[in-house]
Design a protein around this nucleic acid. Sequence first.
RNA 1: GGAGAGGUGGCCGAGCGGUCGAAGGCGCUCCCCUGCUAAGGGAGUAAACGGUGAUGAGCCGUUUCGGGGGUUCGAAUCCCCCCCUCUCCGCCA
Length: 465
Amino acid sequence: MLDLDTVRNTPRRVKEAIRAKGTGSPVLVDTLLEVDEKRRAAITELQETQSRQNDLSQQIGALKREGKDAEAEAMIEKTSQLKEEIKRLKEEVWEAEAEQEELVLKLPNIPHPSVPVGEDEDDNDVAETFGERPSFDFDPAPHWELADRHGLVDLERGAKVTGSGFPFYLGKGARLQRALLNFFLDRARERGYTEMQAPLFVNPESAEGTGQLPDKEGLMYKIKEPNLKNVEDWVTNRLMHRGEIPDDEDEVRRDIRPMINDLMEGDFYPIPTAEVPVTNFHRDEILSADDLPLQYCTYSPCWRREAGSYGADVRGLNRVHQFDKVELVRIVHPDESYRALDELLADAESALDALELPYRRLLMCTGDMGFTQAKVYDLEVWSAAQERWLEVSSVSNFEAFQARRMQIRYRPEPEAKPELVHTLNGSGLAFPRIVAALLENNQQPDGSIELPEALHPYTGFARIE
RNA sequence: GGAGAGGUGGCCGAGCGGUCGAAGGCGCUCCCCUGCUAAGGGAGUAAACGGUGAUGAGCCGUUUCGGGGGUUCGAAUCCCCCCCUCUCCGCCA
């Protein structure tokens, strides 16, 4: 979420960001500013009325204490008009606030000046390529064939048991997963991250905090746990209060139930990334300056709907609905966030180095980066048989965009006003494509697979044959 | 799942329908005192929003005592709904 001041003071910049990211219409900004005017006018009027009301109430109190009941009664009558007025103005303010909230959530984060302007993935900047791509004097097999041959992954049975994109890992395949988990977490811990285990479902507030809601709802699975009672009461009260519905409560409940059902958010979302619970860990907190920087690492499964993808894209482990990942999260002082971004990038890259995988670093262009990010690097490993790059990490600085939604602040000095922190995260790393690359890049003429040395202590075996 | 108790400022903890943003304590900041340390004395210590200033300082106002509704001229205090925490019972990996 952007700061309203930013929108008010530099509407052009915001419009430019919308255009550069290709998300939504710049007209949003003008609409928002109009609503803002309307909202503030209503607030001012409301507050003035409330102030008058408070004065009168105090006077009434004073009169009553002095036993001048008649005078008090006369004054009470005067307040009834104010009461009506306040009720009306409150609704006006609520409506403007709701409208404004909705609009401001649709504004994307402003890209950092160093981000290249571009439309899509073709405009990303290939910043650097690392490691040697392997060459073979035989036809390298794609990872799904290798996995099949060695009995490492079973997608068919996963599809039977759950659905497509929910793999079983077996034998050395399963052990490799467990090895990667420990390998990545150990490295992260050594690099100064505190290990964390997080809940795997989050509520809508958390999903909104990190920016999965409202803009990327299609990304997540949703668990609906209807608990209509409170919503129902609220709507019923509100409608009856407005006199829009006769006061037969049973009838009201029956009529509005379907409406409410439609309006309701799911109660829980299985996490699409551990970024969500980990970053929200500090939601609505004011940290002290000494607490910063905070660095967390966590392992979790991730669930993604990945609607609309098909073809070679989704063969084997290229894109699945459930996968494992170690995530790195940093919460830092605003002045430190770009230094932290470089470090975070180095953390992720060092794991790829240790795994001896060839990879490249992309600086994402404005059109291909996410809604919430100010600057993003993607890391992609080389998949030797498919002859394509596979994304295994996305390392992002959100600046204050998430922090503002989550209200994560810190106090620069003991007495000073709280300020927003900056948040960052990066995969370190996502398992399935790492497995794909490990299998494809390290296959031998005899069909066996040699694992990089760094993994041996974790797997307990050096090759798969 | 059943029964009970409770949620007040950074923390602990008072609070009668009006003078309560809230006593008292702890912590923190600044000052004084003490030759050092410890102790002592004084002052100050919430956030959000709106208005006015220079989008600074300050000033004025509004809101906030778990959340949402309601009653009332006026609610931390009364009523309703929800959430959370704790204790006991049940169930369970």
